[in-house]
Design a protein around this nucleic acid. Structure first.
Ligand SMILES: [Zn+2]
Ligand SMILES: [Zn+2]
Ligand SMILES: [Zn+2]
Ligand SMILES: [Zn+2]
Lengths: 159, 159
DNA sequence: CTAAAAAGTGTTATATTATAACATTTGGAA
DNA sequence: TTCCAAATGTTATAATATAACACTTTTTAG
């Protein structure tokens, strides 16, 4: 991934998050932004309690440490806005990494490395089309599609 | 689904389960068969604890009631043999319902009704091919693919 | 046929993931 | 300013899953 400038990636994602929140009349509060930034710090999937640990590490003295509902509320908010996705097959979360200028709520295909947790996310256009057609053929109305590929990333294979 | 004779469906699935277990030198014990039959009783996805409740309802007097490890061990066994699948997005399980005479470990597409829990399962050949090609294009080695469509089945839409 | 090993099961306890419920605070709208 | 709705804090608990160890049954080796 030589072409990936992660600082720019974080900056763009954060900016987009502000815009999408504003456009929906929602507030991207400090807490929510913190969770997003933790996920944006690396393109890895993290469990809710791992995120919670990071929040606790960062927490300011003189106030109680964050509790599970805090992180789950932020995650729910970010999921609703399509800023993050959940890896259903391992109960983890990652920051959305596709250009959402067109497809705001896209059908994501996630490629998750079981060695290092790295996630690559692609938009599935044909794949989504095929699934919707197949579903229609027997009268099934799709609300949400989950596509997850578990395996080993190129980097980890090279090790 | 007028063409679906469920008694034959159960019979065939059970018979296939015996064969595949035998061919792999594994034993389809009474306990494991019970869990499979509970899942086969209907094409619905069930949680592990729902299955456990059914096992407890059926349990013979004079012996302790089954505990969570009992059902999870049976589920793991059946998952290994490809006789059942897990719906990762809702932590539930259903009996595999495709003809496995060719594709023993197929890429399943599950269409799960969020109203009634009914599952339709289709084999994805093209879909799998496309995912493997896409993965290969960036050096990702796929071990397992999860495709789940959540929505409303034809029956529930008609209600 | 027996002894040893392996596979399966029973049981208790506990880990992990997620949410319910209610109190309190904050930020705008009226 | 007062009120309301949204957000957050806090405690407790629900739901899902596994660790660990004892015991039994089945298979295998001699
Ligand atoms: Zn995305
Ligand atoms: Zn990796
Ligand atoms: Zn199947
Ligand atoms: Zn239905």
């Amino acid at each position: 991934m030589a072409e990936h400038n992660h600082n720019i990636c974080i900056e763009k994602s954060t900016q987009f998050a502000q815009e999408i929140a504003l456009s929906k009349g929602k507030k991207l509060t400090a807490q929510r932004l913190l969770v997003l930034n933790i996920l944006l710090s690396d393109h890895k999937a993290m469990g809710a309690y791992d995120i919670l640990d990071k929040m606790r590490d960062m927490h300011v003295e003189g106030q109680g440490k964050p509790q599970p509902p805090t992180v789950y509320r932020a995650l729910d908010f970010l999921l609703d806005l399509g800023l993050i996705h959940k890896v259903e097959s391992q109960n983890s979360f990652y920051a959305c990494m596709v250009d959402k200028s067109q497809d705001e709520h896209h059908l994501a295909q996630a490629f998750i490395c079981d060695e290092c947790g790295h996630v690559d996310e692609k938009i599935a256009r044909r794949g989504a089309q095929n699934l919707f057609e197949k579903a229609a053929s027997f009268g099934f109305k799709i609300n949400k599609v989950i596509v997850e590929c578990r395996g080993i990333c190129a980097t980890c294979q090279a090790i």
